[in-house]
Design a binder for these strands. Structure first.
Lengths: 206, 206
DNA sequence: GTGGCCATACCGGACAGTCGGTTTGCCCGA
DNA sequence: TCGGGCAAACCGACTGTCCGGTATGGCCAC
């Protein structure tokens, strides 16, 4: 094993867990390195600061989700299918990285203004890509235009934000089901025509 | 003027602003009392601790919204109308107290476990009252039952959580419009029949 | 003069980050 | 093969700072 990778990962993992449980401000660096089984010296060898550690967690998640969205947009599927895939996928990964999400939404504001700006830009890039899908669908006439696009998009992103607040793991495929259900609620809300997906959903939820 | 009320309000107001801007952990008691134009001694005369100050902010908002929901439930309107009113109302008050909401959702986890529990119970009470409306509508056949009620409710509450993240005041009646739009999106998503409210919305948004 | 209301000075502790020193692992010349 | 030398990895005690909370004293109204 490469010892450096191990140390970095151990620290990151421990930090995510502790930040999610106790909050960023209430977690001391000493607690993190103790939980990770390393020492302060090792940690500060790989991370410039406690803030840097927090930022690393964000970046990891943002990069992952950004890449996955880009891959979906790059397919030759219909707009409707792309948006559906994008919604389901981002909910699923948000559930998979629930702890990271918890930390993210709770503690982003603790970063220094400079890093906060970078996070903002990264999130905006994701937002714009997502909004472009909605816009395309609006031009095709499948999504309503009587409500500002920003509101439509915010209505979906809100689900991602709220997820860490109420979701708790029950079954193995529970996450996939929730993703389908939330996606269906969103798409039903923004569509100009009644969706026919209810049957599919009902079948899967049995 | 009663000097005590003035001090209490000044401290609370200053605290909400600073907590919303810099976060609870990054705001010192000294900053708060400076901003409020009082001293630490005065503040600790009215509040037991910094936590107590935070808790007071929550309680104020929770009580207000709880009372308003109860009033709406107590009317003789139809279930559909009650739920619509409840949604619009809680979004509007959330916008009116946007700073309080920001603090609430960001810093609730910083409270001692005991107070966190009380917050949780209060929120659950609100949640249950809201869910009861949805349940009534389901029995009437106007809301879909193919998705767990908890998911339907969470889908709406998520909008409240996300509001402080993206909403920024533009016009005076902007808040009311957003409330109508988000409510429409939610109700469209959970309804068994196509809503006819789109015309109304379009009219108001012109 | 006495009791709420408030100012000021101060305490104790927690915590991020540092820094001198030690170990580990690798390369290279003989 | 071996040993010497060097750089990166790692250790952990220490420090300066900041901050919540308190103790004490005064002031003013009644």
């Amino acid at each position: 094993m490469a010892p450096n990778a191990s140390v970095k990962d151990a620290v990151r993992t421990a930090a995510v867990e502790l930040f999610a449980r106790d909050g960023f401000a209430n977690t001391s660096v000493q607690q993190i390195v103790d939980a990770a089984g390393v020492t302060k010296g090792a940690m500060y060898h790989y991370f410039r600061s406690k803030d840097d550690l927090l930022f690393g967690i964000y970046e990891h998640l943002l990069t992952l989700q950004g890449e996955r969205l880009a891959a979906i947009v790059a397919t030759r599927d219909s707009t409707a299918q792309k948006l559906r895939s994008a919604c389901v996928d981002v909910i699923e990964t948000s559930i998979e990285f629930l702890a990271e999400g918890t930390v993210f939404f709770r503690s982003a504001h603790m970063l220094p203004a400079e890093k906060q700006l970078e996070v903002k830009h990264r999130r905006r890039a994701y937002n714009d890509q997502f909004a472009a899908l909605v816009e395309a669908g609006q031009h095709e006439g499948i999504y309503r235009t009587d409500i500002p696009r920003a509101v439509l998009v915010a209505n979906f992103f809100s689900d991602l934000h709220y997820l860490p607040q109420w979701y708790s793991v029950d079954g193995p495929e529970d996450g996939n089901l929730i993703a389908l259900q939330l996606t269906d609620l969103f798409l039903t809300g923004i569509s100009t025509t009644q969706l026919s997906s209810v049957n599919t959903l009902t079948k899967e939820s049995q």
